[in-house]
């Protein structure tokens, strides 16, 4: 009985705030501005007016586009740099491997909020402050160690015998990589790409310090933070839901890719 009560309490604590977020996002404005009366606990006169308002606002589309563009370019740059590095770390037992791994993770040992000032100062100096490129480079910096680690795990899980067989059959290093290893490591690399997208999509600290003051390039997180005092709560909740949906959906996709082990049983 005690255990059951515990489960119920935990579920209320975990799901309660999420329910309230969804409830606010579909609430009529009159059920939020109640003139001192309690705000109903359920969606009184549920409406999609907050979402309709949001998707009829051209500025919101601009913000959405900024977020998508920055996330996609971060994935592209991160993968271009990360896949070759993860191939080396995953496939070769190199002398000094531990030192290389330490060097890769070293910049991430600094808290984001501590490393953001030097990065912003440097970008101001080279003229990349308040630019898409600056934010993409910063997000790539955050994601790259994770891409390399996830990718190295994906390459490492491919049996050595497969590569050996390809070499015996006359494939050179590039053919082995592009025709054998890369397709086999795809699920892991896809997980790394999705992880990068999520990181860039809801990243706040670097985006805030690098974009503050230039609304044209604001991402969703900055837009949400910028309007928190000005806009009604149902709109804040609707933006929060829009920000969360890709994160929740892609989180499940990453799980799926992580589970898929396409190389299992491929060595005859």
């Amino acid at each position: 009985m005690l255990w059951f009560t515990g489960i119920i309490c935990a579920l209320v604590i975990v799901i309660g705030p999420v329910y309230l977020l969804l409830k606010y996002s579909v609430s009529d404005i009159n059920s939020i501005n109640t003139g001192g009366n309690p705000v109903p606990m359920w969606p009184y006169n549920p409406t999609l007016q907050a979402y309709v308002y949001l998707f009829s606002d051209s500025h919101f589309y601009q913000v959405l586009l900024n977020s998508v563009v920055i996330s996609l370019f971060t994935i592209a740059l991160g993968m271009i740099l990360g896949i070759p590095a993860s191939y080396v770390l995953g496939r070769y037992k190199l002398p000094g491997r531990k030192v290389l791994l330490l060097m890769i993770i070293s910049v991430r040992l600094f808290p984001d909020i501590a490393s953001v000032i030097p990065v912003v100062e440097f970008f101001i100096k080279i003229g990349m402050h308040q630019t898409y490129l600056g934010v993409i480079l910063a997000h790539t910096l955050l994601a790259l160690p994770y891409i390399i680690f996830i990718g190295a795990g994906a390459f490492e899980s491919i049996p050595d015998d497969l590569e050996g067989q390809a070499i015996i059959l006359g494939a050179n290093r590039f053919q082995t990589f592009f025709k054998l290893l890369f397709p086999l490591a795809m699920p892991g690399l896809a997980a790394a790409a999705i992880y990068t997208f999520l990181l860039s999509w809801d990243e706040f600290i670097f985006s805030y310090f690098l974009m503050l003051g230039k609304q044209e390039i604001y991402t969703l997180t900055l837009y949400l933070n910028g309007i928190k005092y000005a806009e009604p709560q149902n709109l804040l909740a609707a933006i929060s839901v829009c920000l969360s949906i890709p994160v929740i959906a892609f989180s499940f996709m990453v799980q799926k890719y992580m589970v898929a082990g396409i190389s299992a049983g491929s060595v005859k």
Partner: peptide
């Protein structure tokens, strides 16, 4: 064997130097 790792290492090390230098 290791040259493919260099662009990523260069990228990360450059930022490490920038962070330390500016801090």
């Amino acid at each position: 064997k290791t040259w493919p790792i260099f662009p990523a290492m260069f990228y990360l090390m450059s930022f490490l130097v920038i962070v330390l230098f500016y801090l």
